[in-house]
């Protein structure tokens, strides 16, 4: 399995890169970590005229935390770098919980978080995390300057995003958790590091009395795009310690419409949605309590 011939450009500035993408249009493909694109090339599932390698552009790396607590991840930040980053972890623990489930160390050393999002694979962890954190993608183009695209507008279908061929994703922003909010991430894969048969990223928000006020979940390997489901109706107002997470799981299972494939049938996936949701919500509620106490002790 060898990639087909292609032209290769490795520009050293963002301007040059955007110029090339504008000039080449549909003939070009961005090469970031290559951990999804190179297998596709080798399997001859894609044959771009020119690869535009962004690995030499300075200034596309770096992780920063905004004053409001969002985590901004530059286009050349590898999964391994996000996983190790303490400031990102304390701003939003969901990022490390999910990134640790992305493939294996050798893949994480090369693959990028931004590339994962740009690839728009509904089985990818980071697409679900972008969705549930209400995140966005910053895209740049030669003529159009930069714009932010919300997760909702970004993902159009499996492996399909609203990125235009002349656009580069320069960073992704994962939204900050609200006050008194905890999160959890659970997935089931045949082997650790494989793409999950089903995964759930959830958040639970408590009110000042410790009752559940808001519950959300996003899933991987369940729908064509990472949708965020509001499960509050099943548990709002219940004390977190005795909340009916089983009912929330059942509600989730009734809202999703998974497809079956080689790895898992549709029914099995729906069952996994219920079970993983139930377990993840209990963890997220405990996390909400811990984070609320931590925040109080910081005052």
């Amino acid at each position: 399995m060898k990639p087909p011939p292609f032209g290769y450009a490795a520009p050293c500035t963002l301007e040059e890169t955007l110029g090339l993408l504008a000039e080449l249009g549909h003939d070009a493909k961005v090469l970031a970590g290559g951990q999804s694109l190179i297998p596709l090339l080798s399997m001859r599932l894609t044959a771009p005229h020119t690869l535009v390698d962004i690995n030499r552009i300075p200034g596309l790396g770096g992780i920063s935390i905004t004053p409001k607590g969002s985590v901004v991840v530059g286009a050349l930040v590898r999964h391994a770098e996000l996983l190790a980053d303490e400031s990102a972890h304390s701003a939003n623990p969901l990022l490390r919980r999910a990134t640790s489930q992305v493939a294996h160390p050798a893949i994480r050393n090369r693959g990028t978080t931004c590339g994962s999002v740009a690839h728009a694979d509904p089985s990818g962890e980071m697409t679900a995390i972008l969705a549930i954190t209400g995140g966005s993608v910053r895209v740049a183009s030669a003529g159009g300057g930069q714009r932010d695209v919300s997760a909702t507008d970004f993902f159009l279908g499996p492996l399909e995003s609203s990125l235009r061929p002349d656009e580069l994703a320069v960073s992704v922003r994962f939204g900050a958790p609200a006050a008194r909010t905890g999160s959890a991430f659970l997935e089931l894969a045949r082997r650790r590091g494989d793409y999950a048969m089903c995964g759930a990223a959830v958040t639970v928000t408590l009110d000042e009395d410790g009752a559940v006020s808001d519950v959300r979940a996003a899933y991987l390997s369940v729908g064509p795009v990472p949708e965020v489901h509001d499960l509050s109706a099943a548990v709002t107002g219940q004390p977190y310690a005795s909340a009916d997470w089983v009912a929330a799981g059942a509600l989730a299972a009734s809202l999703v419409d998974p497809e079956g494939d080689l790895h898992a049938s549709a029914d099995y996936r729906r069952r996994l949605v219920a079970v993983l949701t139930e377990r993840a919500l209990a963890q997220a509620a405990a996390d909400a309590v811990a984070r609320t106490q931590e925040a109080a002790s910081c005052l």
């Binding site: 290559g34 190179i38 390698d53 050393n109």
Partner: peptide, 16 residues
């Protein structure tokens, strides 16, 4: 190992 870190050599081009 690429600068000491494991990577798949089948998922990189020599030019990189």
């Amino acid at each position: 190992l690429l600068d000491g870190a494991p990577v798949r050599s089948c998922l990189m081009f020599a030019v990189q």
